[in-house]
Every structure is written in structure tokens, then in C-alpha cells.
Design a protein around this nucleic acid. Structure first.
Lengths: 366, 366
DNA sequence: TCGCTCCACTAATACGTATAAGTAATGCGC
DNA sequence: GCGCATTACTTATACGTATTAGTGGAGCGA
């Protein structure tokens, strides 16, 4: 057989590109093994599906591939197969998570672990890059199509773009409840049940009047907690109503020791704070109680719908629940993998674990 | 013209894939605009290069593209053109930088800013994923080929793989000096000059005996500083030799107040600590001086070859230099962009800025 | 020995884009 | 009115892999 003319100095435009040896492709492996490129693909993709490849040939191909150091081109794989075993993770914070490190990182741990377990590699995209040529517009988001599917983190994910990807059939999973977007898959923590359970716990300790302290934010995570809180009150036969929820844009300013004493005078014996990025609600009740000279499990009970902010991590463990961030990340990957495989998504809610903690007890005798 | 049979329900293997509308490609845009696919590509890639496309046609194509919401497929772009305006960033720490957050993040800020300015988007790869199917081997690194080129961060970058990519002509830049690998491009801080300058400063203040405290690590960043330190001594006509460098695996244990007093008794008036991930060298001298009851600019001078660790950021500003991390990140991107464009790399060293600080002064009178 | 099924492959084609090469149509000098 | 650019495109092909649809035997029953 005559040596093929190897007609491919086409890329030889730029000086550097000229010399590109370029690594071997399947065609080279095939030549070395004396088979066709298709056979190489079949052997390497290891589709046991009616393989119909003799062991001897298979071995020859594998040896050839190894000796040439063949590695597949992920771009070509994606193009040809719509699959390259890469999962994208899109975070809308600039570059790497830093401020939000404490809230995002645990998710990513779960994401990575589960992805690895399922044989996927991760590719991370970031949402900034606004200013460049390829940036800003729809194109910025578009690069996630390099992967088989993509996970989205963060609150500021543009609906329009997501909708578009969903419509295109590109597998997408949002980490966090996101129901307003028809057809979008998501996984989230079951804040409703968990919050409700915290209230049940308080009620079982004998508390009759409980107040929820929350920030002025309408994120699903906040409204879910409030809903669960109110449901818990109702289930325990306690009074709900507007008085049961204290909403403030700046709890640190509004939840004063005075305000606390007033509540207590009104018969409130337990306070429940939501967890947010800032941890302000919890910090505020915590500080107000200390400042008012009230001891925690004795004079009043406190519960936290989530985990304390880092600066309060050293204090007594709050009664409440733990958001299973690792599991959430893992669940998101599982769901994404299902979508990529063409299966339908399953249960999106992950349960939070109740944390007894040390900040609740029976209400004081009056 | 008869409607093309649209022969592409090939992907319809998996249930989900069956319904993939898939977004429009250039072919669709072309049909709508009444031109060929090639024309669409020419218009959209906007190669002013002898474009030879009438304004009217151009506009028709652009309108068609917009109305269909066309966005290019990055995988296809890379495959066809070896360019997709994506730059990869490979970090060898698991998922997102966390421990190393303080040392890596500033680099990334510069990287991202410069990339955006040059019209590149970033794709981030992480080095873990060990355990999955597509992981571990050469293939894990291989996915960076989705991008036009890749930046590598971290000390544990496998040489073999890097060598391979360099040999293949894949544009690669290592962030940090890396000379042992022939042909590998890198950018790094000029620790040698900067360290030398710190010594010159001390010498000009009158110090005659200066000791460098360093950790037991042979990273280029460490050896560079030592080299600059020694060069600085020599330039100032001061004694170098083994006594001038104190090397310890655990400075916190070995640099005691006693040891410090001994040095001073021997005539040493200034100490220079290297900066490392841990900041241990600086923390050790700092603590030892305080414990020995020595006041800093008065009884002895201290200098730091870099920035203090976060926990000491509040103390008096150390004399020394600032590693221009943003600029390093930006320089790395510039170099990578050059390589991608087929140009040759330019100056890899970035100067560090001398920081006068408040921890050095004239040596005490004896 | 014909027809049939397996077996072990190969040929052909598709994925979506970029680009070199080619081709009408027009303009222009002479 | 001919050659020759130039303009404005189109055609054809390549990128590297996956996959479907063959294809040429071998084996086997009748």
C-alpha cells in the first residue's frame, strides 16, 4: 500500500500551527494495527453490545493504541456522539467561589465525588467574563455545550438562557429549587419538612408561642422555610398569623434586646431564625439574647433553620437541621446523569437531617 | 426546492435524545437567508480578511442568525478550526481552590480579567476526579484540548503529560517557573531580583549581617528567593556562606527566642523570611521576636519576601515585596494567547514591587 | 451445493464549522 | 470585444470520532 499523502498541512497557517505533530488519531492506530478506523472506535469504546470483535484483533488494537499513546479528542467525541463523559458546572459568581465559599464549596465536594463515581469528569464554567468578545451574550452560556450536560449553581441564572437549553434538549440541572421554569430539572433541600420538624420539636417541648426571624429576601430557600414553619405551627395546633413571622431587611438593627424582651413579655418562648448567606438573622437573635442577659436554653429557646455562619460556629450547637450539601451535590449529579442517559429525572428533594443541638429546652415556668 | 428530508433522527436512540430539537446550525441560518452555509460562516466569523461579502448579504445573514437565535457549537468550532476562543485553566487541587484559596485566587482574578479583555472565555478543569472511568490516566488531562490552549496552576503538574502536550503543539503555559521541561512556556515572578533588592535595602540601612529563614522545600519559588538573597549579599559586599541561610522543616519549632538572641549576639541585625503557602517562616520569626521581647524596627529588622499569611495581615506592614499576582495571571494569559496565535512567547518574568513597610530600620547601636 | 445464519470486520456517513479552491458575474483598460 | 482583475459567492473538503449499514467468508442443516 502506498503511503497516504497525508494531505493535512492545512492548518499550517500560523507558524506555530505549522509544526503541530498533533497526537495520533484513531486512523493512525488503525493503520498500525492493520484494521479500519471503525474497528478502532469499536474496540476503544468497548461497547460490549454485540461486540463481534475477535479477542486477537481487540488486543492488537489496544496494543497499538497504547504504543502510540492514543487519547481521544473530546471535541470530536462530543460532536460525533453527543457524549464525551464531561459534565459542566456553571457558577455565576465571578471566577472561583470565594465569598460564597462556605455555601458553595460543600456542594461541589458532593458534585465531584459523585461525578467521579459515575465516570464523569467535570468542566467548570464561570459566569463573569463580561467584557470580552465572546462574552456577555448568549454565547457565554453556550460554551457549556462542550459537555454532555450542565449543572447550574447560584441565584442569578438567567431564565431565558436556561429555558433555551431546556428547549433544545440540552441536559440541565439547577442546584436549588426552581419551579417557575417549566421543564427545568432541579434538586433542592426539603426545607419545608425540615422547618416543620423543628417547630414540632419546639412544640413537643411545650412551647406555645414561637416566632420566626427572617430576612427580607424572597429566595425559594427563604419562602420554603417560612412555609414549613407555618405548617409546623398549624400541625401543632399553634397560632400562625402575621405575628408569628418577623421579617426584617436588617435583623441586626431591628432585633434588639428590647424587642426580644417585649416578645417574651407577650408570651413568646422560642425563636427560630432562618439561615442565609449572611447568617444575619441568627446572629441578630443570638446577640440580642446575650445582650439582654437571657440564657439560652433556660430563659428562651432558639433554633436555626440551617447551619450557623462561620463566626458563630464556635458557640453552642444550635437546634435545627443540617442542609445536606454533599448529598445535594451528589443528587444533582445523579439527576444530570439520568438526563444525559435519556432517563427521566427522579425525586428532586433531599431531606435535611434534624440536629437536636443545645439551644432548646422546655419553656421557663411562669 | 423540495424540503430536504432532514435525515437526522440518528441520535434518536435514547428516549430523551429522540426529541432533541437541537438548536439551529449554520445550515438553517443559510437556508433562511438564502445563502450557502459557507457564507454564513464567513459572515459570522467576521474575518475582515478580504471578506468580500456584500453588506446586504451580510445583513440578511445576521438577521437570520438573530431571528433563529443561532449560537455556534464550540465543539465543532474547535474541531474545524483549532480555535474556539476558550482558554482552559487547569488546577491540580481538587475542585475549587480552598486551602490554597489565598494564594491562588488573586492569580485567577488576573487571569480572568485579561482573558475577558482579549475576548476569551475560560473553562476550568480540576485535577481530582480520580476514581471515575474517564479519570486517572492521561485522559483526565486530555480534556483540556477542548480549549484553544491551557494554563496550568500548581506544583504537582505531571511532567510527562505536560511534555506530551507541548510536543503535540498544544499551547500550554505554566503559572510558575518551570524550566526543567524543555519547551514548556511559563510565567513567574522575578523573586531573584526582588529578594536581592530587599537585601540591598537592608544593607543601605546599615545592616552587615543578615540571615534568611526558609522552609525545607525545594520549590523554585524558594530557591529563587535564596538565590536572590545571596546575590544581594554579594552585591552589597556582605558575607554569604552557609551561615547566612537558616533552613528548617519546622521554623515554628526551630526559630526560638533563644535562637534569635544567639543570632543577635553573633552580630546579626536583620532577618529575612521567605513566603510560603503556610507562612511558617515569617510567623516563626515574628513570634520569636515578640516572645524574646524584642521590638521590631528598634532591636532588629525583619523583612518578608512576599506577603504575610492572613492571620498576620493585621500586624505592622512587613518590609519586603508584593508578588504581583494579578499581573502574573494576566501575563500568563497574554503568553497563552500569543502561543495560540502562533506567535512566540515573550518575557516570562514579572517584576515584584518593593514594599518599604515598617519592620526595618537602622541596626541598633552597639 | 444452495440457502441461511453468524461472525468479524469495513465502508460510508454524520456531527457542525472553517476554509481553500473554484466559479459566475461585473468592471475596466485598451 | 478580449483579457484580466475583482467581487461575491458556492462547492468541496477537512477536522476526529461514532455508528449504521453493509460485505465477504465460514459453518451448517437439508
Amino acid at each position: 500500500m502506498v503511503e497516504q499523502p497525508s494531505k493535512r498541512p492545512r492548518r499550517g497557517r500560523t507558524p506555530a500551527a505549522t509544526g503541530r505533530t498533533s497526537r495520533p488519531r484513531q486512523a493512525e492506530v488503525a493503520r498500525l494495527a492493520g484494521v479500519s478506523q471503525a474497528t478502532v472506535s469499536l474496540v476503544l469504546s468497548d461497547k460490549a453490545q454485540g461486540s463481534a470483535i475477535s479477542d486477537e484483533t481487540r488486543q492488537r488494537v489496544l496494543d497499538a493504541a497504547r504504543s502510540l499513546g492514543y487519547v481521544p479528542d473530546p471535541a470530536a467525541q462530543r460532536l460525533a456522539a453527543v457524549r464525551n463523559n464531561l459534565l459542566g458546572v456553571y457558577s455565576f459568581t465571578a471566577t472561583f467561589p470565594t465569598d460564597v465559599e462556605h455555601s458553595y464549596y460543600p456542594f461541589l465536594v458532593g458534585v465531584e465525588r459523585e461525578a467521579a463515581a459515575r465516570g464523569y469528569d467535570l468542566v467548570l464554567f464561570t459566569g463573569s467574563s463580561s467584557g470580552g468578545a465572546g462574552a456577555a451574550g448568549p454565547e457565554a452560556l453556550n460554551r457549556v455545550r462542550l459537555a454532555d450536560g450542565c449543572l447550574f449553581l447560584g441565584r442569578h441564572v438567567p431564565s431565558a438562557e436556561l429555558k433555551r437549553m431546556v428547549a433544545d434538549g440540552f441536559p440541565v440541572v439547577h442546584l436549588g429549587r426552581r419551579e417557575e421554569l417549566e421543564g427545568l430539572s432541579w434538586v433542592g433541600a426539603d426545607y419545608v419538612s425540615a422547618s416543620s420538624e423543628v417547630v414540632r420539636h419546639l412544640a413537643s417541648l411545650g412551647h406555645r408561642r414561637i416566632v420566626l426571624i427572617r430576612e427580607d429576601d424572597d429566595a425559594p430557600a427563604s419562602t420554603d422555610r417560612q412555609q414549613g414553619f407555618l405548617a409546623g405551627l398549624e400541625a401543632a395546633g399553634l397560632a400562625g398569623g402575621p405575628d408569628a413571622v418577623f421579617r426584617s431587611a436588617d435583623p441586626g438593627r431591628d432585633v434588639t434586646p428590647d424587642r426580644l424582651r417585649r416578645w417574651i413579655a407577650e408570651g413568646v418562648t422560642a425563636f427560630v431564625a432562618e439561615e442565609t448567606d449572611t447568617g444575619n438573622a441568627w446572629r441578630a437573635v443570638h446577640a440580642a439574647a446575650a445582650e439582654a442577659g437571657l440564657t439560652c436554653p433556660g430563659d428562651l429557646s432558639l433554633a436555626l433553620l440551617g447551619s450557623p455562619p462561620p463566626d458563630l460556629a464556635g458557640a453552642a450547637e444550635p437546634t435545627g437541621f443540617d442542609v445536606p450539601r454533599h448529598q445535594l451535590g451528589a443528587a444533582a449529579v445523579r439527576m444530570l446523569a439520568s438526563l444525559v442517559a435519556g432517563e427521566t429525572a427522579d425525586e428532586p428533594l433531599v431531606a435535611c437531617a434534624f440536629r437536636p443541638g443545645a439551644t432548646t429546652g422546655s419553656p421557663p415556668e411562669r
